[in-house]
Design a binder for these strands. Structure first.
Lengths: 351, 351
DNA sequence: CCTTGGCAGTCGTTTGGTGAGAGTGCCAGG
DNA sequence: CCTGGCACTCTCACCAAACGACTGCCAAGG
């Protein structure tokens, strides 16, 4: 394998870049003639053919069939993304749209959901926003609200401003002021711990306190455990928006491929796996074609970026589209929205 | 226009029924020959052709082209639905699936969302659940939770058990026990009123109290108004699930039609309008083809039913699919899930 | 050594035509 | 009123031929 992509000389690189760009723009296989016509090379089609043949030998290009032009392979795209791509600067409008959308609401959930919509619209691709289970995140406070006789709404606020609600059913009777006290107690006791840690402590406490007969404490623990349990089963943490946009892509014009694609997007588990793996990565990530199970089968490309505060990634935002997409535009878009979300979350934490 | 659909004699009715049923089953135009073969008529194809020609003259059938069989028109479907259809009884499994799903969670939002999924799976169509703004519904209680310095989470519980959260930002400073008091005050004062009524009262109070200098009351009012305002902008009240299922329907095999259909489903405003109009109707509603703007353009059929408690409809549940669908199966399905949701909500109200 | 024009060869797509098949409408006879 | 028969229409699948877009290779020229 070559280092730094130096296996290609300047001309070959330019040709590859032009082919990728033209192919992304038109969706068609690129012929030597159309390369010659574009004017960036002072070469005849025949010369370009030689260069193209070399690129094909090296695995950067492929021919759909003998009498067609060339299209980039996975490897070709990868090289383009790593060494040849010059990211477009976002337009004023794009930046404004994102900024406005992010500052529009204060509820993180809502902001994230809107972000996937905004992204899908700006990119004209499928927008994805992922927020993994809160089990790993620290809480700021926990409150309990009496909803009905034996129903209590627990409100958990994370240090990152995320609010999680859960209705807990219990046969124990709580009065309003008891709940008030319990909330204050738990918030004070467990501030800054993760839900997972809290649950473990509560469980340990049950064991220790069993002998004792502090009724109030027992009730507190019981309620606390209920509130913390199963928060992760809340499956509203993946937003996939703009699926209709893939209908416009010619690569999915075949109904069978379309159907498979839709089903793939509905199968959220795999997508979650993939996005989870993007979570730890710091910068922008671009995955194409054969580089992951998910993208391999469907010839997808994914541009993703984790967002969150400082050292703690909270989730992943990105787009999914056909492998042939404008990475040069998608990359800064995803990057920008990721930064915007991170900024938002850090602001929330300040409070 | 004929009353009671008596314009057709017994034989014509049977022929129409058979044609609709066969067409729904196969998706193809029905020929006189295939009618004769089905055995339900002791007639030759030629005789059936005469009947079919009559039905065509009356507008119940149409021919896609000269040398094709007949398919039902909107009018034909309408007649079938009103006079000819005999609803299938739900299978044990179907009923169990619905019952289980509905009793699975206590959070109404969650139940509704799941309902649209369940429906889409059982029906193999697009499942829709709509819950209109809460402005018209009565509240049971209102509580406020301090999330951050100047951020307060309001928790509104409706008499029907629906819980709405909203984060309110304010420059006023509230202490925990103040919030506690305010919640108690508002819950007591406004129990059973609708959000709309509450807002109006609060606004009136502002005016009346302006002269006075009861700081606490002013703060209460300010917070109350904020909490009640814009609840309806929360757009999470329409669940559309199973859009991929329309990919399997042969009528949408054409990519253009497919694309339009998806875009239509994404345009939620129109859908909301339509469902809103179903809200007041008591029983099951079936809308097809030209009978509404929404269904007209895309040749959709919609089976919908409002759910809620006793006299107060809370929302609408239904399915959307191609006009050619098994109404005889869809109708009881939607009906049953509507009843199940209503039951659930009434149970919640008991508490 | 690189570049270039030319030319043969390959392959996909379009076009036009043909025949089979399916279905109707109509008519005449039972 | 029902029925079989027949002529007519229209779609669809199929095939062949022509076309067009490329490439690969070669030999000539800078």
């Amino acid at each position: 394998m070559s280092q730094q992509g130096e296996e290609l000389d300047g001309r070959a690189r330019e040709v590859l870049r032009e082919i990728v760009m033209q192919h992304v723009a038109t969706g068609e296989a690129i012929s030597s003639r159309s390369l010659a016509k574009c004017g960036r090379f002072q070469l005849s089609p025949a010369s370009l053919r030689n260069v193209m043949a070399d690129l094909e030998d090296l695995g950067y290009l492929a021919q759909p069939h003998t009498s067609a032009g060339r299209i980039p392979t996975d490897r070709g795209y990868r090289f383009f993304i790593d060494y040849l791509m010059t990211s477009r600067v976002l337009t004023q409008l794009e930046r404004e749209t994102i900024d406005e959308q992010v500052s529009h609401s204060t509820e993180i959930d809502h902001v994230l959901h809107e972000a996937s919509l905004t992204l899908s619209r700006l990119a004209d691709q499928v927008g994805v926003v992922f927020m993994p289970t809160l089990l790993q995140f620290a809480i700021r406070s926990m409150d309990f609200v009496l909803v009905a006789e034996n129903k209590i709404l627990s409100v958990i606020v994370g240090t990152n401003g995320v609010v999680v609600n859960k209705v807990v059913e219990t046969r124990l009777n709580f009065k309003r002021d008891e709940l008030e006290k319990i909330g204050r107690f738990i918030s004070g006791e467990f501030f800054g711990l993760t839900l997972d840690q809290i649950r473990r402590r509560l469980v340990r406490m049950t064991e220790e306190e069993r002998a004792m007969h502090d009724q109030m404490l027992q009730k507190t623990i019981a309620l606390g455990i209920e509130a913390v349990n199963d928060v992760h089963t809340n499956d509203n943490d993946l937003y996939v928006e703009g699926a209709a946009s893939i209908l416009t892509k010619p690569e999915f014009s075949d109904t069978m491929a379309l159907r498979k694609t839709f089903l793939a997007l509905q199968e959220k588990e795999k997508l979650i796996d993939l996005l989870n793996s993007c979570l730890t990565e710091e910068g922008l990530q671009i995955l194409i074609g054969s580089e992951s199970d998910f993208t391999h089968v469907h010839n997808f490309g994914i541009v993703a970026k984790s967002y969150g505060s400082h050292n703690a990634p909270l989730g992943v935002v990105g787009i999914i589209g056909p492998m042939r997409m404008e990475y040069a535009r998608m990359a800064p878009l995803v990057d920008y929205i990721g930064r915007a979300l991170s900024r938002k979350i850090e602001e929330e934490e300040q409070l």
